[in-house]
Design a protein around this nucleic acid. Sequence first.
DNA 1: CTGAAAGCGCTTACAG
DNA 2: CTGAAAGCGCTTACAG
Lengths: 339, 339
Amino acid sequence: MKRPTIADIARRAGVSKGAVSYALNGQPGVSEATRQRIIAIAQEIGFNPNSAARALSGATANAVGLALCRPARILGIEPFFMELISGVEGELSARSYALTLQVVADPDAEIAVYRRWWGERRVDGVFVCDLRVDDRRVPVLEELQLPAVVIGGPGHTGTLASVWADDAAALVETMEYLVALGHRRIARVGGLPGLLHTEIRGKAFVEAGERLGLEQSLTVPSDYTGEEGARATRRLLGAAGRPTAIIYDNDVMAIAGLAVAQEMGLAVPGDLSIVAWDDSALCQLTHPPLTALGRDIPAYGAHAARQLLAAIEGREIGAYQDETAHLTPRGSTAAPSPA
Amino acid sequence: MKRPTIADIARRAGVSKGAVSYALNGQPGVSEATRQRIIAIAQEIGFNPNSAARALSGATANAVGLALCRPARILGIEPFFMELISGVEGELSARSYALTLQVVADPDAEIAVYRRWWGERRVDGVFVCDLRVDDRRVPVLEELQLPAVVIGGPGHTGTLASVWADDAAALVETMEYLVALGHRRIARVGGLPGLLHTEIRGKAFVEAGERLGLEQSLTVPSDYTGEEGARATRRLLGAAGRPTAIIYDNDVMAIAGLAVAQEMGLAVPGDLSIVAWDDSALCQLTHPPLTALGRDIPAYGAHAARQLLAAIEGREIGAYQDETAHLTPRGSTAAPSPA
DNA sequence: CTGAAAGCGCTTACAG
DNA sequence: CTGAAAGCGCTTACAG
């Protein structure tokens, strides 16, 4: 099957190729009557502009990139990324932008991908996930002048645009809730050290612990996997003066922690309260269902996409603060049973 | 920052642009010495070929497409797709192929995306997921002559290439295992009706049930979500002569079923054995951990990618049978307790 | 083995 | 308001 081109349309309409281009792109330079005639012909023959030709002349690829630096196992089990992608997609496809996805092995590979995409002119901009403190990707993207939106913050984003949420506030709200229930020994199973939001949450946890006068407020670092979440939980529950509540940095670790508690014969929430960060559907599948800190991740992705499209158009943009995660109490939290 | 082009390399090497192209693409037409000199210069100045220019002349986009027709919530919670994508990516990035992802609302939108991608020449080929009986996408892709690999089967793929696994055999193995444990009333919570693999599993379930002389072998249709999985489980467990074992068409529904059983005061595996299809890490996070039918999904994706690249190169390909899922017994299955 | 040139399908100044 | 033409950065026959 031969693909129709603007030359075909021009021939049938009896105009020049330039006129077809103007008509189809809503540019001035053709009469309204001609425009309508051309649009009708384009529709009739099922014309779609060749994206390569368009990119080559217009200098815009009509595609944006997302490089994910997580192993397959973690990517699969983390609902976050797919939900983010869904939200991103909604905005992009409304503007006929394509999303180019690449899974990379490490930060160096990710930077290499950005350089290649830039060199190939394959994408007009990129999303940057898993922001780190002093992230090496930021200066590279600034140097390349490749439009980018950092998903994370606040701060550490250089001159790049960003979307972020106030994790510190969400964590403090959660701790106050647990304290109000009567908890005095609260632990936290943290995400990957080095990620900015892990550091922000860790700092907020320590500060709020002091302010609230907790007897204990210990963080055990982890890596978002169920195995590590289970291991961290065993370590916390095996020690003397074990916590009566644990806050997990994602839902997968919280679910693993719940299984460990049940395995050890501890009642949830009687002996141990559990709070999950990221309130995916998983949290409602357990028994008891998990109290969780959630927010609308597809909407977060949609905001990120809007920021990126604005950046590509050269509009001045900065940091967009998304909604703060809110706590949904479910069956996994309650007052601690008297010791 | 100005992107280097082959013209820059040609100037510095003192050769024509054509020679640079030949040298970089491993084509004959330049001496080995010249080739090495050109490659060295390209490396030095960080050259990457403009993908649009390449696509426009070479007629290959160096990208393949994947359209996903599932709502955000299900996409997020289903580890299958991200694992598949990870595997696909491994093959693609080794060949410098990009993956273009699009989330679509329904089959019509998906078909429209294929037509648009084809017209735009944006992708060289596509993956087709969630194959249906008499799938309308198949004839469209055949008509467009857009290289495609169907992920699913066997059969119903027209002249398109495919990768598939023998779900019927896996299901029969599972039923024989449950029967050997002493189960005589086995139920199944199925996936979306209309999907080919749902139909294949349903048919195998009925046939094996008869052959094994089960007292009961009932399938309740569902939609892969936890909510529906829970509802189906309640329905099955609330009826007289309730099953002693349930096989779920995915792990999310199995986890929801486990919670329902616990909620109803049934012991798992004492009162009810549970088997999950899709052995993601989720299955090991529950208490008890779930017996599951698993296979290497990233490898499945890698095979699909190899098939698609072969199809794009015009090589004759057919249906590739991947490994059959194998059963991993865990704590959720045992002999039924005497009634 | 090498160079000059046409062409892929668009967009966009530039003349009329 | 419209047409003819250059140009984006490659690839690939076609001459030498």
